[in-house]
Lab assay of single mutants.
Amino acid sequence: QVNIAPGSLDKALNQYAAHSGFTLSVDASLTRGKQSNGLHGDYDVESGLQQLLDGSGLQVKPLGNNSWTLEP
């Protein structure tokens, strides 16, 4: 069960990665100043990332080996 409060997208993504045990490689300029609506409930990694990114204009991309990145 994930419980991440709304706020900074950077912070939300870092909390989610730490909670879910995956690696997220992101260029900080992509997420700077963006906000997230947070995340509450049970999600697989990709669904949770998509939910956190909702409205940010960013997309999640798998890199393999439980690693992910973001792209515009």
Rank of each mutant, 00 (worst) to 15 (best):
Q1F: 15
Q1N: 12
Q1L: 13
Q1D: 09
V2P: 04
V2W: 09
V2D: 02
N3R: 11
N3I: 12
N3P: 03
N3D: 11
I4H: 00
I4K: 04
A5I: 06
A5T: 07
A5N: 08
A5Q: 10
P6Q: 07
P6C: 11
P6E: 05
P6V: 05
G7F: 00
G7H: 02
S8T: 10
S8Q: 09
S8G: 06
S8V: 05
S8H: 06
L9T: 01
L9N: 01
L9E: 03
D10L: 14
D10P: 03
K11C: 14
K11E: 15
K11N: 13
A12C: 15
A12G: 02
L13Y: 01
L13W: 00
L13F: 00
L13M: 03
N14E: 15
N14I: 14
N14Y: 13
Q15L: 11
Y16L: 07
Y16W: 14
A17H: 03
A18M: 12
A18N: 10
A18E: 12
A18R: 10
A18I: 12
H19C: 14
H19G: 08
H19S: 10
H19I: 15
G21V: 00
G21Y: 04
T23F: 12
T23K: 09
T23L: 11
L24T: 06
L24S: 05
S25C: 15
S25Q: 14
S25I: 15
S25R: 07
S25P: 03
V26I: 13
V26E: 03
D27F: 01
A28D: 10
A28N: 08
S29W: 11
L30E: 04
L30T: 04
T31Y: 03
T31K: 00
R32S: 11
R32P: 02
R32E: 13
R32W: 11
G33D: 09
G33S: 05
G33F: 05
G33T: 04
G33Y: 07
K34F: 07
K34D: 03
K34H: 08
K34T: 02
Q35S: 11
Q35V: 13
Q35G: 07
Q35T: 13
Q35P: 06
S36Y: 01
S36T: 15
S36F: 03
N37C: 15
N37T: 08
G38Q: 02
G38V: 00
G38E: 02
H40M: 12
H40C: 15
G41M: 02
G41H: 02
G41F: 03
D42F: 15
D42H: 14
Y43I: 04
Y43W: 13
D44I: 03
D44A: 06
D44V: 05
V45L: 09
V45A: 06
V45R: 05
E46K: 11
E46Q: 13
E46W: 14
E46T: 08
E46C: 15
S47T: 12
S47V: 09
S47F: 09
S47D: 09
S47P: 04
G48E: 01
G48V: 05
L49F: 08
L49M: 07
L49C: 05
L49P: 00
Q50M: 13
Q50N: 12
Q50R: 15
Q51H: 11
Q51A: 14
L52M: 06
L53P: 02
L53S: 03
L53T: 06
L53I: 13
L53G: 00
D54T: 13
D54K: 15
G55Y: 03
G55S: 04
G55V: 02
G55A: 05
G55T: 02
G57P: 00
G57V: 02
G57M: 04
G57A: 04
G57K: 04
G57W: 04
G57L: 04
G57H: 05
L58G: 01
Q59H: 12
Q59K: 14
V60Y: 10
V60S: 11
K61F: 08
P62Q: 13
P62H: 14
L63S: 09
L63T: 11
L63F: 07
G64W: 04
G64Y: 03
G64A: 05
N65V: 09
N66Q: 06
N66R: 02
N66S: 06
S67K: 11
S67T: 13
W68V: 06
W68T: 04
T69L: 14
T69C: 11
T69H: 07
T69M: 12
T69W: 07
L70H: 04
L70A: 06
L70I: 15
L70D: 04
P72Y: 10
